[in-house]
């Protein structure tokens, strides 16, 4: 079955078995291994990617069902090797230990911040409630997301003309 996806802005066309998951398509067909292979039951969130800007668990998503859509993976966050602000705040807050959950955490957090630029701590915890971390105890991850929101708000308020800017994604 031909599956066409735009992944991190680049178009791909690949012939795959019909029951290929988006996770397998990304990791084994496109060799984008940032997205992690975790529980395969949608519980742990390590495989979270964005489809049209909304977070999904790619282990339960048939690739053919999202053919023609836009996918963003953790490889799509940085610019020419330079970490984006959310990633940088994960680093400065020590929000990553073993790192296995980090790509999924980043994608859930990125989806939250694009939809809700000024989340409360409760909203951050709710947005990350589908992502398990067994190392950090979550607090540093939550801090990193809240700091990113604050930094983005300051950057936006420094720009005089906001017309045309958009914080929504996938709406």
């Amino acid at each position: 079955m031909l599956v066409e996806l735009k992944v991190n802005g680049f178009p791909y066309r690949r012939e795959v078995a019909p029951d290929t998951t988006l996770l397998t398509y990304l990791r084994e067909v496109l060799e984008l291994t940032g997205t992690k292979w975790g529980c395969l039951t949608g519980d742990c969130g390590a495989c979270t990617v964005l489809v049209d800007g909304e977070p999904v668990v790619s282990c339960l998503q048939l690739a053919c069902q999202v053919s023609g859509h836009e996918v963003t993976t953790v490889e799509g966050l940085d610019t020419a090797g330079e970490l984006n602000d959310l990633q940088a705040h994960f680093v400065s807050n020590g929000a990553s230990q073993c790192g296995f959950c980090t790509p999924g955490m980043l994608m859930s957090a990125e989806a939250l911040l694009r939809n809700n630029p000024d989340p409360s701590e409760a909203e951050v915890r709710e947005a990350l409630s589908g992502n398990l971390c067994r190392c950090t105890g979550y607090n540093k991850i939550v801090d990193a997301v809240l700091e990113t929101a604050k930094a983005r708000a300051m950057a936006v308020s420094a720009v005089p003309d906001l017309s045309g800017s958009s914080s929504s994604v996938g709406s």
Binding site: P55, V56, A127, G130
Partner: peptide
């Protein structure tokens, strides 16, 4: 129900 990801799907 589930998580944000599960509810999205």
């Amino acid at each position: 129900l589930g998580s944000v990801q599960v509810r999205t799907m």
